[in-house]
Design a protein around this nucleic acid. Structure first.
Length: 260
DNA sequence: ATGCCTTGCTTAGCAAGA
């Protein structure tokens, strides 16, 4: 069973690329972030015609998340029930596994935070506190649990192209990394680090300054998995290929596979 | 470097991203 996450930076612009990617990477669940479209503008017909199901939470201009899936999503939850949020950032659903078990999936677009001294950073911290409360509750109801998305946080220096210069800047602060570790401490594992990866393995590259060509990136898109899924983990990788597309997203998909 | 590029919104130049 395969799961993937991709921040598409506008589904309007990237819809053809998403459909192309799904045609060659028919994962069971694809979490999308930054739809940047109102709820009633979601292109459900295009996904349906291509044979996919979808559940989404849209928002005009900013944010927006979706789960594209082979099966219909069950027990869909939009945003965190433990947090009042103006932003469309979270969507959860349950899917059947091949062996009769179920998998609970959360797709998330975590706040950027802008700068460590900003109001947006304060919001990011509060949002992460509330997320942990929700994740803890979800994990108690479903052993096969996975949370994937654009975390906007690096784990450590390995996730940063220039860790010395960027130390303490947004995505690389101790406060953000403490939050990520607190989430992990609930019993989650960074799936990509379970498997051997290329050197300087990133998931996002700035549009400016030829950052992709120079591999000046950050690994900020993650798939965190419960112990039950860790026992079934068979593969995890960043698919850099779509970052080479014409008019690419600045993020690349991250894929996780569990063998049931 | 308060810059670079890409979105949306609006239609000239911000706001926001990361």
């Amino acid at each position: 069973m395969q799961f993937a996450t991709w921040n598409v930076n506008s589904l309007n612009i990237r819809l053809p690329q998403v459909l192309d990617w799904l045609a060659t990477h028919p994962v069971d669940v694809l979490a999308l972030q930054e739809l940047k479209m109102a709820d009633d503008k979601f292109p459900i017909q295009a996904f349906t015609e291509a044979g996919w199901h979808a559940a989404w939470l849209g928002q005009k201009t900013y944010n927006g998340v979706a789960l594209i899936s082979k099966q219909p999503a069950r027990d869909v939850q939009r945003n965190n029930p433990h947090f009042t949020d103006d932003h469309a950032r979270l969507i959860a659903a349950t899917f059947d596994a091949p062996n009769g078990e179920s998998v609970r999936v959360i797709g998330g677009y975590f706040p950027n935070g802008q700068a460590p001294d900003s109001d947006k950073f304060v919001y990011k911290m509060a949002w992460l506190d509330a997320l942990r409360t929700w994740v803890k509750a979800e994990m108690q109801t479903q052993p096969n649990f996975l949370i994937m998305g654009d975390y906007n946080i690096t784990f450590d220096a390995l996730d940063v192209w220039d860790p010395e210069t960027l130390e303490g800047t947004i995505h690389c602060t101790q406060a953000e990394r403490d939050q990520l570790q607190a989430l992990v401490a609930l019993g989650l594992t960074d799936s990509v680090r379970l498997f051997e990866q290329p050197e300087k393995n990133y998931s996002w590259w700035d549009y400016r300054d030829f950052a992709f060509r120079r591999n000046r990136g950050l690994r900020i898109d993650h798939v965190l998995i419960s112990d039950a899924l860790k026992a079934k983990a068979s593969k995890a990788y960043v698919d850099k290929a779509p970052r080479k597309n014409e008019r690419p997203s600045d993020h690349a998909p991250v894929v996780f596979e569990a063998t049931f």
